[in-house]
Structures are given as C-alpha cells and as structure tokens.
Design a protein around this nucleic acid. Structure first.
Lengths: 190, 190, 190, 190
DNA sequence: CATGAATGAGCCTTCATTCAT
DNA sequence: GATGAATGAAGGCTCATTCAT
C-alpha cells in the first residue's frame, strides 16, 4: 500500500557517492549509513560487508558502462573512425549523465585489497586493447603495439575527466572534439 | 666500522616504499617502523605525525623531480621538439632509476585529506600547462586549449607507467619512442 | 498430503540440537531459524526471546528426564542395589536414545546468566542427594555425607558421557556394568 | 627507578578471574580492561587477541598444574596407594591455594572454538590414563579399562570442586579423606 | 502466523599519537 | 634520541529484538 521502503537503493546510492568522493578506504560504514539515513547494521542485510559491497557495486557499474561502450566500439558495419568517435563521445556522455557512478568506477579501480579479476566483457581496458588489435589485423591502421596504444588512448581520455573533477578543466563540445581528434591521431586514423 | 646510524633515512626510505606500494592510508606507522627497523615512537622524533611526514616527503620528492624535468622542458635555446622529446625521455629515465619514489609521487598525489597546494615550480602539471601556453604564444604550435593539451600529454605518459606497474606492459626503447611520437602528435609538433 | 506445518516443533528441535552442539551463547537466533527452515522473527511468535526459550526447553527436558529417573530411583519395594543399578542403566539408556536432549541438559546446565532455580522434582542433583539421605536414615548404607556422596556418584556417571562426547571412550555393556559397580562401591552397597 | 608499571600482570590476572567466573565467551575485552584498570587496546600490546590470550593463559596454567601433579602421581619408589593419595590431596591443595586459576582451567577447558590439542605432559586427563595403564601393567591393580577408570576418578574429584563452586558443599579434611577413599575404591587399591 | 529489513547496543580489533623510562 | 606500553577514538561487524508488511 505505502511506499515499499526499499532502503537498499538508498544505501547503494550513498555508498557509490561516498566511494567516488572520498575513496573506498576513507569511507566508513557509518558514513554510508548516515548518508543513506539508516543505521550501520542495515548494510549487512544486503551485503556481507563493506568491501564486498564495493566490489559488487563496482562490477555492476562497470558492466553497465562496458556493455554500452562495447556497442559503440564494435558496432557491426560501422567504419573505424566512426566507431572511435562514437566511443569517445559516449564516454563523455556517460560521464555527464552519471558523474558519480563514473567517478566511482574511475577511482575505485585500484583500491581493492586483493587484485580481483574482471572478465573481458566487463573490462574497458581489455576491450580497447582488443579493438586496437582487431583494427591492426584488419589492416585498418598501421601495425602498432596494441597494449601500448590502448593505454595511450585511455590515459588521454580519462585524464580529461580527472582534470574536470579537480576543477582544472571545463568540458565542452570543443574539448570533446579535441579529444576525439587526439585519439584518432594516436591510432593513426584518418 | 659500523655504519653511521642514520635512522631518519631508514624511516623515510621505508615510508616512501610503503606509501608507493600500499598507499598512504593503508600504511600504518607500525608498518613503517617495522620496515625501518625502529619502533613506532621514533618517527615522532623527526616528524610531527604520519600525514605530515608523507606530505613533506611528497613535496621533497616532487620538487627533486620537477626541477630536473623543468631543466629539460625549458632548456634555453633548444628547439621545441627536442625539449618535448628530452622531457618525455627524462620521465621514463627517472621512473627507471627511482621507481619507488616515482610511484610514490604518482599514487600519493590525490591521497591527502586536505587539498594542499603545491607551488608552481614543484608542480609538473602546471609546468606542462605553462610549456604549452608559451609554445602557442611563440607560434611554435597551433592555437590550442593549453590546459587540455597538457592534460592529454600527461595522461598519455603517466598511463604507460600505470600499466607497467600493473604488469600489463613492458617498457622498452620502442615503447618510449612511440610515446614521444604520440606526445608530439598531440601537440601538433613536426 | 503435505506434512502439517508445525514450525514450533522445528524451531525447538533446531534450538536443542544447536544448544547441545555449540552452547547457548554461541548459538544465534539466525542459526536456529536457518536450521529450522524459518526466519528469525518466527521464534518470537512462540517465545519471548532466545534465553527464555532456552530456559523453558531446559526445564521441559530436564523434567521429562527427572520424572523417569525418579521412578527408578524411588521404586516402591525394590531393594537399594536394584534401584541404584536401574537408575544408572536408565541414564545410559536415556543418553543413548536422546543424545541431543541429554547433551543439551548436561551442557546448558551452567550457562544461564541469572542463577535460576529448579524445583526439587525436576532436579536430578537434589534427587540423588535425597536418595542417599534416605538410604542412610533407613540404615541401608553406612552414615556418610549425603551431599558429597551424591556428587561423587553423579560426577562418576556424567564424566563417562563427557568422555563419550569427546570421543575418548566408547560406551558398551561392559562399561555400563563397570559404572554400576563403581556407583555401588561409592555408596558402600553390597 | 620507579615501579616498572607492568600492567601485563594486571591484565592476565583480570582475564583469568573473569574467564573463571563468567566463561570465555561471556567475558568481553572491555570487562578485562576495566577490571585491570587499563583501556581496551592495552591487551593487544601483549596478545594478538582475546581468544589467543585465553588459550595461552590456559596452556600456561594447566602446565603449571600438570607438572606438579605429575610429580606426585609418578613419584619414583612410592607405593601406588601413596601416590594416589598424594595426587588427590594435591589437587585439593592446589584448588585451595589457586581457586581462580583452577576454576579457569576447569571451566575454560571445553570453551575453545577450535579443538586445540595439548601435549601429554600438560594434560591431566592423559596423565591419569597413563597412570592407570601402568598400574595395571605392573600388576598393582586388577585389569581394567584404563580410559574408563581414569574418567571415573577424574569425574569424582572434579565434581567435588564444581559443587563447592556452586556452594552446595563445603570442603574440609573429612571430605578430602572421603574422596581419597573413593578414588582408591574405584581403582581397586587396598 | 510468518517475513525479513531495520534497529541499536555492543563486541573485537586497529591505529595515530603520547609519554614515562 | 629511542623505546614500547598505554591511550582513546574510531572502525567493521554481530546479534537479539522489533515491526511494517
């Protein structure tokens, strides 16, 4: 009858927001509970613990992002340049629409105590590497170290977001155009 | 005959090594003391506390690095392309020679609770931005968003180190050549 | 066709089994609910709380046991030696038939926070003491400290069960015969 | 110069007293700290944790007791009856002199989560069993189940202490004489 | 009657920092 | 200068119990 009172959502939202802002280790369970308007123990009804929750949320968010990114990056029949452009633009769109979730993915990435493994489909880094590798094999771009090239492109794009988060750079269409161009130049496209 | 007991050195080395490996927040005073072969209280003979020590070490290390980098980046009379190339190569050399210190700078960067400010001379990010700005003004490269361009170049270079630290990429001369090339292309040099 | 849903029974059985195995304090309400196939709240439909339930079950089980034991111990017209023998054998029979319930009685005995009192009829310790006392008064055995003698006999018998639970001793007819003999010797019978 | 301020002793004494009184699981670290007049963290300077401390103290106390008991039980050249008598009397003496430590040994015995193993020399139960076994082999007492006999004797003696702790029985010389007699009768001595 | 999310108090443990020695 | 026991404030987590559904 009344609102189902699903505080799990509140907890997850609070957690993602705080992890993105303060980092995993610096965010306490009390912080999360307080931000979500519940008590500390409530978290443990839905997750086995703080780190486990962070990891699950991380996987979920990165998978949502990766699936969408993959659609652009490997769109059937689209030319290489268009796929690069669509991918880069998508990343910025996603960042604009879900800034908190994106920052969470970006920053939490290296914060997990045990080096857990993501499968390829949920892993943008592997995805970009595969993209470059296939383009080289198809003769669409010159031979190059695919691992290196994927790193260069990713570093390029992500650094822009980092600068934005630290208020060093405003992101507008011109900036995005520049990043698209830079990515293409790294990959020797066009 | 016994080596002079310079425990401050031991403490600093241990701290940098651990900060670089585990991160600031994840490194305890006990860790540092144990790694340095002293007891916990000894640290407080030389520094007011853990975070203060980390900040001082961070400033010292980043200044050492920045001064050397600045010499290459702004070498009087040298042509732009040569300065870019020398700068990128220097970063890799520095990383090769002082991997721990470099990782410390790289990773600790965003780990300080209060947003402390570095002066320009000790700040590679500002330095690169100034470099691009001056090159544009001098007409050596086309007009571009200097902040953005500096971010792109830095993102490019640093991501290579990140990948190396995560064992995704081996760094050899070919890789460095590629990074140099990529940086030049970003800056529209040559 | 489905079995009648008597969840109270399930809860009680689960509780006794767990209390006997892990102890009162180490058994959580969640343990009990999970073992019984219900949820945590269900317990509170039938009992005011965990400890109250334990105490009620303890009283019920010890009373069932005590009534039967009392019949053997104070059987009208039977000679003393026969009553001792029947009582000891009954304890072993009961232990063999209801090992969980017996272990529950044995181990939970001293686990209740507040020193609750059992009435005499439900209290084997008092019962044994009364038995010895009456036997002395009747001149069937020499004068002795009844409290002490009852303790010695009980200690004797119960320790055998403890050893069995810890897999130090197998209980067979020869063992039971020996215990009967030992009890008689303690009480100077025969 | 001044008193060394060894609070470790205070902590251990407080812990043993509380473990003996309330049991291991029911005793909190806060209880121990408060009883010892220190703060909670102090415990962790000397022990890795509550349970580890309990286990170390348990081993230490049971070893102290066992060594002394062993001297009486296996005294070279002494006749069997004298050794039994000396052993039983020693147990009561020890209980009278160190009631807290003894109760701690007695009650904590089965409270450890993981079934840890004590070596034979520190294990009164094994010791009594060996005693009976050797006496049978030497022809000093009739053939009997050594495990059972040792259990009977131990159950006998310890139950007296349990009753004393629950204020059901006062222990005086007459009681001790009776227990000595009972033990001998169980073992068919004299 | 049953459910299970939520509570709130408490538990064990960690850790930067202090201070008597 | 150095030591290391002690502090005190969290921190993550558990659990008996309550209550809206």
């Amino acid at each position: 009858m009344a609102r189902p009172v699903v505080k799990k959502q509140d907890i997850e939202n609070a957690a993602i927001r705080l992890f993105a802002t303060k980092g995993l280790a610096q965010t306490t369970v009390k912080d999360i509970a307080s931000e979500a308007g519940v008590t500390e123990g409530a978290l443990y009804r839905h997750y086995p613990g703080k780190n486990a929750m962070a990891w699950q949320l991380f996987c979920r968010e990165i998978e949502k992002f990766s699936i969408e990114l993959g659609k652009r990056m490997f769109e059937q029949g689209a030319p290489l340049a268009a796929r690069v452009e669509a991918s880069v633009r998508f990343i910025f769109e996603y960042y604009g629409r879900y800034p908190v979730q994106f920052a969470f993915i970006l920053l939490t990435q290296h914060g997990f105590p045990e080096e857990k493994i993501l499968d390829v489909a949920s892993n943008p880094i592997d995805m970009v590497e595969r993209f470059v590798d296939e383009a080289v094999r198809a003769g669409e771009i010159p031979a190059m170290n695919a691992t290196l090239a994927s790193g260069l492109v990713l570093g390029l794009v992500l650094q822009v977001m980092v600068m934005h988060r630290y208020d060093r750079l405003e992101i507008d269409n011109a900036v995005i155009d520049d990043v698209v161009g830079a990515a293409k130049r790294i990959l020797m496209i066009g």
